[in-house]
């Protein structure tokens, strides 16, 4: 069952064309990394595939399942506690009770920080609160933009487990990262250098 079908996608920034003719079909259980030199348009393509950008995007993008997007900004209110932030998250797509959230926070080793305003947490901790969303979502299609940045080794391992677990259970993940092929043979690479439009 294909979760994402993108045909002949073209991306423009302002009136400068970035990419053209990008076609991609993500089946359930697949893990894709968007690869390419800095500035080629990885993030722009990712946002277009996730449905965040419409202007300057041509071509057909069809998502067959609910999508989750985690980008650079953590979408957390600094004044609210992690508990409130995760319970009231704008893209939350399932009824969640406090135990589930507490378990998710414990899983990202933030036990005990449930009622500390997010503004008081460190950047790394805020990043982990944002990534805790991966445990409380029903979205089968994950879009992760540079998810491994600002994560320590423990955090990276945790994230790798979540990604492989999600893919194993029939979901699909599209991500970008500076490190090359972190998942080795299990991941497919989409090299954007081939689609750069001059």
């Amino acid at each position: 069952m294909s979760l994402l079908i993108a045909t002949e996608v073209a991306i423009e920034r302002g009136d400068r064309p970035l990419l053209r003719g990008v076609s991609l079909c993500v089946e359930s259980g697949e893990l894709w990394q968007l690869v390419g030199p800095n500035g080629v348009g990885k993030s722009s393509l990712m946002r277009a595939l996730a449905g965040l950008a419409r202007l300057g995007v041509e071509g057909a993008i069809r998502r067959q399942a609910a999508a989750l997007f985690i980008g650079h900004s953590s979408a957390l209110k600094r004044a609210l506690t992690p508990l409130d932030n995760l319970r009231l998250h704008p893209a939350c797509d399932m009824p969640v009770d406090d135990q589930q959230i507490a378990r998710a926070l414990r899983s990202v080793s933030l036990a005990g920080y449930e009622s500390v305003p997010v503004g008081a947490l460190s950047a790394g901790q805020q990043r982990r609160v944002a990534l805790a969303r991966l445990l409380i979502t029903r979205a089968r299609l994950w879009f992760l933009d540079e998810p491994f940045t600002a994560l320590d080794t423990a955090g990276c391992e945790w994230l790798e487990q979540q990604i492989t677990g999600h893919v194993a259970s029939g979901g699909a993940v599209v991500f970008t990262s500076h490190q090359q092929s972190r998942f080795g043979a299990r991941q497919h690479d989409l090299d954007l250098a081939r689609y750069v439009s001059l």
């Binding site: 030199p37 800095n38 500035g39 990885k42 993030s43 650079h72």
Partner: peptide, 8 residues
């Protein structure tokens, strides 16, 4: 002009 693009 390439590197001035902060993120892709």
């Amino acid at each position: 002009s390439d590197s001035s693009e902060t993120q892709g």
